[in-house]
Design a protein around this nucleic acid. Structure first.
Lengths: 254, 254
DNA sequence: AACAGAAATTGTCATTTATCAAGTTATTCC
DNA sequence: GGAATAACTTGATAAATGACAATTTCTGTT
């Protein structure tokens, strides 16, 4: 198919700073000052991570908070016996590292699923003496954690899914909402992870994932070309997922 | 069985304040002052909730943070079409409400799974003017959220479970660790939720949950008398769950 | 102690999903 | 651009789980 060749390199847009999870913190650090000199001492901007490379290795010391600027990441837990479990995906605008804040080391390995870039914010700011600004930093962090927690809350719905079709519909709708939340189209995006990753994440065989995607496509709910994914019938997909039909709409207008 | 009659009323111990999720906040508010007068203006202590009663109704305005003092709760999401999804359980020492902090209303209904009691802390403290103490409150909240987030992280492992046996083993080990974390025995506790609740939470049929429990018991990994549950072979159960064998030990000594 | 209702167990059968194997299509790397 | 590799698809079969119905046990109440 010729169209496929044209679309192969289409990728998700870079997220704007105003839609980024680090926005609050960056603003405090001088993002909106004419020269960014102050900001630049705290934030390492647009660090590139090539497809397949690790941004974070499990066991590594916790030093930075990251925000995905462009591209996509997965978090994987590796076990002694060689098994691996994908525990999360990170979309543009979302933060990486919040879930490890309690300890001193990262629990999971974070890998780029395509050529990606991140902004890194040093966690040293948390150790500074208490002052007015410090208070605000903490508040920003609290907001970020709150958002992350709500996202994780939704995973609980995923866990109760009754069958593969519902699980996968829920998964797609979840990704869609998250794209929309950060100012990108919520019905047309690049699903950069492999079927294997999705399957591992959802606890399904990857053949099952493939078959369900195909079925959803045949029913006209979604359309895929390689990794590019378009949702063609949001209400029906939401229904399959067992969500209220307003699911995506409400988060768009919010 | 005669022994059963004796054990019917055995219940989980009340958690000590020093093992409670609200400890930091209560301490700030005067928990350790000789008279508790200051504390009592912020904290409503030992509010009783009878088995089956709702502590929180979905949609209700967010006003308090709760900590489970004794007993057990479940959080349920209700859908328009009548379906319900159990999204979380709350054990003694754990907090309730953190996951809704972002919004103004509760998303889930929280129900007591046995005669329980909670401490309630007014969220108004968060709106007070910025002062030294306010900073500390925020920090406490950040710590609580961090803990909750790590707990939720573990749910991600649950989601990837390959089969019912692994799911349920993981579930039991998870509950066990959480009891241990708050100073209670991690190998002997009352599992107050119904099979139906566990099944709903894990996305399994309740008959399957029952059969797996029975199988685990026949293999000698666990022992149950009614709701009372004892883990008899931690390493084997951890193995089934696909966890490192040190899982429980490490959290005990910590 | 006895009753009523709820919860749990058990057995059978239908459905879903995993597993394995073979073939096809995409990607990556020279 | 082409070879090598990885990812995905498809089909057949086995295994796990869900659904239903009948029975037993448990729980709470009087």
């Amino acid at each position: 198919m010729q169209a496929t060749n044209n679309m192969r390199w289409v990728t998700n847009r870079e997220v704007g700073c105003n839609f980024c999870g680090l926005y609050g913190i960056c603003k405090l650090s001088g993002l909106e000052e004419p020269d960014h000199s102050r900001l630049d001492t705290f934030v390492q901007r647009r660090k590139k991570v090539a497809n397949g490379e690790n941004l974070i290795q499990a066991g590594e010391q916790l030093q930075y908070l990251y925000a995905v600027k462009a591209g996509m990441f997965k978090s994987t837990r590796y076990f002694d016996d060689g098994r691996e479990q994908v525990v999360d995906f990170h979309l543009p605008g979302e933060m990486i590292g919040l879930e490890s804040l309690g300890g001193i080391a990262h629990l999971n390995t974070v890998t780029a699923l395509e050529n990606s870039s991140v902004c890194a914010y040093s966690l040293h700011m948390l150790e500074k003496p208490k002052d007015e600004q410090q208070f605000e930093y903490q508040r920003c962090l609290l907001v970020s954690m709150t958002e992350k927690m709500q996202q994780m809350q939704e995973q609980s719905l995923l866990m109760g899914a009754q069958n593969a079709e519902q699980r996968i519909s829920l998964f797609i709708m979840n990704i869609a909402r998250r794209f929309g939340q950060h100012g990108m189209p919520s019905d047309f995006f690049r699903l950069s992870m492999l079927r294997r990753d999705i399957a591992n994440y959802l606890g399904l065989a990857f053949e099952t994932v493939g078959r369900v995607f195909k079925k959803l496509e045949q029913q006209g709910f979604i359309e895929t070309r390689g990794r590019l994914t378009q949702i063609r019938n949001i209400p029906e997909l939401a229904l399959l997922a067992g969500l209220e039909p307003v699911y995506l709409q409400s988060s768009r207008t919010a």
